[in-house]
Design a protein around this nucleic acid. Structure first.
Lengths: 230, 230
DNA sequence: TCGATCGCATTTGCATACACAATCGATCGA
DNA sequence: TCGATCGATTGTGTATGCAAATGCGATCGA
């Protein structure tokens, strides 16, 4: 569902140059290639992408509007620097929004959507077995987006995806512990059960706990690897 | 609080031209001067603001990132056209987010914040008496933003304000019925009571109902004034 | 030796110029 | 008369150039 059409995909050579640069920068920030706090020189980026400053500027403006970079007037831009406190705030926000989504989804999803979600969830079992982090990450994204979709509120779904993506950009230093994978799936299992019973409130509470568990794990990780300054 | 400092305000002549244009366009969209679906010609806007196309383009990109305008590649931009369904989706989303905020705020607000909110609420009584819609609108904004702030989650507060602003841009054709003003304050009263009792869940439910009531009123208004095409 | 001020280099912000894509109208064909 | 194709026009997308502002370094003064 995410990538299908060839005429208007996000990557290759077609489409607007500024959009390509924006996507590239988004990826680089998300993957950590561009570290938080890194200075973003327009001319330098323009050279790297073989373009002029104009599309680079437009890309930076869009990223700034999305919150990924901070743009101080006449002083250039830097990759948005996140404090642990702010990251936790973002996690809490995502948790609450996800809780909303799963509650609404529970009450509104069609049998077809329910079936798709169950199938998706079942497919995650072998992934956990093999311990493939990237595969699980991909599944996890699908799982949650399926829930967004099932709210039958496309605006809410867009908001959820936007916030989640924004958080994702700082989740690279993520916990890669096999234990968390299993626990994540168990929590999904509990959520699925609440959905099956039609108990939106319980699904909501469990989803919130699920997200906050992930946040707590990350919190410990941050505390452990806390650097001196920067 | 909105307009005070002279050195870095949002309006006059200082600051970036692109930002001023962005703010101006935001206002014009919010007030309806620029109707939904209106074409946004870059050169034309540049002439109107006495600038070149460059800052206009940057402003448009930022607005597009915020969802206020739709930008189709090489086909120019139009003010985001909202269907009644989408507006209702936005209302529901705002209602849910506000419900989150008031629940968290109930559990986390400081005595000072509680006192401020009570004072704010008390001040709304004479406004309702006089029936000053603009004054009530201003108060209402303060009231809700005070709640956002009291969540002690600045990211969530930013999200709430952003979504609310985005919806505000299409609330100009708003219900101007004195009845709704009184009912709105009564609903605030009920929310305040739940907050006073420390019952975040009840405050949350009442806030959701409060927002959905406003949405329902608007829905009736839309149905009544539904135009043919456009 | 430490601080402040002046000047320079770098970089952003804006304007202008050019190329290409999309739309609209006209002409040709059926 | 209706449809399709081709061309002109409009407008976006990108590149380049210029001016102003910021930050830094050096020099001068205390």
């Amino acid at each position: 569902m995410a990538s299908g059409s060839e005429t208007e995909d996000d990557g290759d050579d077609r489409g607007l140059l500024s959009d390509r640069i924006r996507n590239a920068l988004t990826d680089e920030i998300a993957t950590g290639t561009l570290a938080a706090g890194a200075a973003l020189d327009e001319q330098q980026l323009a050279d790297r992408f073989g373009a002029s400053r104009t599309p680079v500027r437009e890309a930076l403006r869009q990223l700034a509007a999305g919150g990924l970079v901070e743009l101080r007037a006449r002083r250039g831009g830097v990759v948005a620097r996140m404090t642990p406190e702010r990251i936790m705030e973002m996690f809490e926000t995502v948790a609450e929004i996800e809780a909303i989504c799963v509650r609404l989804a529970t009450y509104r999803m069609t049998p077809l959507e329910r079936s798709y979600l169950i199938e998706l969830h079942d497919l995650s079992e072998p992934i956990v077995e093999t311990g493939d982090f990237d595969a699980y990450d991909s599944f996890n994204r699908q799982f949650h987006e399926a829930i967004y979709h099932a709210t039958h509120n496309s605006f809410l779904a867009e908001q959820a995806i936007a916030v989640r993506n924004r958080l994702n950009a700082f989740r690279r230093t993520q916990l890669r512990q096999g234990e968390r994978l299993r626990r994540s799936r168990d929590e999904h299992e509990a959520i699925m059960q609440a959905i099956a019973e039609g108990d939106g409130e319980m699904a909501s509470r469990r989803m919130r706990a699920h997200m906050l568990n992930a946040a707590t794990s990350l919190s410990r990780f941050i505390e452990t690897n806390k650097p001196g300054g920067v």
